[in-house]
Design a protein around this nucleic acid. Structure first.
Lengths: 258, 258
DNA sequence: CCTTTCAGTTAGTTA
DNA sequence: TAACTAAGTGAAAGG
């Protein structure tokens, strides 16, 4: 990370300005704490009188100005805005973050800076809302309306022949049979074809109409076309929703975690 | 502010732990940057694998974990949660932030810390979404439904005798006369009495029923009782809404501001 | 690019 | 405290 940090009793404003400009240019994460006033004008308008706050400007041009308390920043700017940094009267450092569409502007004027730092965060980590495929299935079995309102469970049988996919059988509100293919990750062409195999097999056995539903967090590009061609539906299932359904059961684990 | 800052190539974890604990105890704002993994379990569940991030813990126990990009923190904890800081295996520093109701837990484990700082922010500044009382009146004149649906303007006259308050005359959907008292700040007893004077005066002049509405961002405590006793209504008017109504007109000024 | 919907929404107000 | 609503909502998905 090799952070650049300015921390002095009275750091030179010019040094701070240079550090800020460099951070912006190199898309580092910038953190500045000091005494400032803040004006916003755009979708609304606000003014924050003098006080000590923490300014964070992130690599994508998001701006967050935090007071000492509260989850939310008191003032902010969403990603992709542009900056103008300048020194006024030799003793004020102003940062103006502007955005077009909607047209809005945030102006932060420091009359004193305590700490300024620029961080080149090396972060390739993966973020995942995690439930296992088995947990997703459990959630759907527990709460079939996750997939579709009025859906009624027919069979909890998992295996219809092979592996890699989880499936559930149900009946929809019109009395049609429904095969639900569950994937915990973005579903691809393979998932659609697998679903097709299940449906085709089932159609040979029964004379009732059979629907197919692919339940997954999302579809990989192109999959929706195949799915439509085969005549099946897609239902987005979020891991969070599944987790919430399962939550009562995981409370024991949560206690342990705490 | 007199910030305490730890910034070294490889700072001692014990020093960091002490700084964090002190910041938490004294309700300072804490900022820690370093390489970490993050696990969350509560309303949902998530895992973030190793990478460099910025952790901010605010005076009220809000937790924000920011990656290099994005307005929103990747993981967080709302205000009023509790902390446990510990060193594991002598080379991992873990911060666990837990909350009851809903029961949830955030666990951040650093294997390397680049910078840690504790800030005692001195911030008595006032935050205001600002429109003037005149602007509020303009907004209501432009868009009477801000006060009540179906309201129709009768008079743009401002003065009915004295000062300090802005008033507007209208007719409601039932054909009753309406006097609207506008205050840009939280309305007090005085505002209610002022409204009463206007209504009483008007009732002497006309034989139709006359309503009174106090339009302000909010009511000071006790004022709602008085208002109810007098038989008048309160309508909360947010500065933001007014601003949005007026916005088309302020675009010129906004351009100038940018 | 615009619209709609969702969020571990958060925050504020009221009953 | 719970329920309801608004937000400079932000972010993602779909048209």
């Amino acid at each position: 990370m090799s952070p650049k940090v300015i921390s002095a009793v009275s750091p030179q404003l010019t040094d701070c300005r240079d550090l800020i400009n460099e951070a912006l240019a190199k898309q580092k994460v910038l953190i500045v704490t000091g005494n400032c006033t803040v004006d916003y004008e755009g979708r609304a308008a606000s003014r924050l009188t003098s006080g000590e706050r923490v300014l964070m400007i992130k690599a994508d041009g998001s701006v967050l100005l935090h007071r000492r308390s509260g989850y939310e920043p008191v003032n902010w700017q969403p990603p992709r805005c542009q900056f103008r940094v300048s020194i006024e009267d030799g003793k004020l450092l102003s940062v103006v973050a502007t955005r077009q569409k909607p047209k809005e502007s945030l102006r932060i004027v420091f009359d004193n800076i305590a700490v300024a730092m620029a961080l080149a965060l090396d972060d390739e980590g993966e973020f995942a809302m995690h439930v296992t495929e088995e947990q997703m299935k459990q959630a759907i079995l527990l709460e079939p309306s996750l997939v579709e309102p009025g859906l009624k469970l027919i069979s909890e049988e998992t295996k219809m022949g092979d592996s890699g996919f989880t499936d559930v059988y149900a009946e929809d509100s019109s009395g049609r049979l429904v095969v639900i293919e569950i994937k915990r990750t973005p579903a691809s062409r393979d998932a659609a074809l697998q679903l097709n195999r299940y449906v085709v097999t089932l159609r040979k056995r029964v004379s009732r109409p059979v629907r197919g539903i692919l339940a997954a967090p999302e579809l990989r590009s192109g999959t929706s076309v195949i799915l439509a061609k085969l005549g099946y539906d897609f239902k987005a299932i979020s891991p969070e929703k599944c987790f919430q359904v399962l939550k009562p059961r995981t409370d024991a684990r949560l206690s342990e975690f705490l």
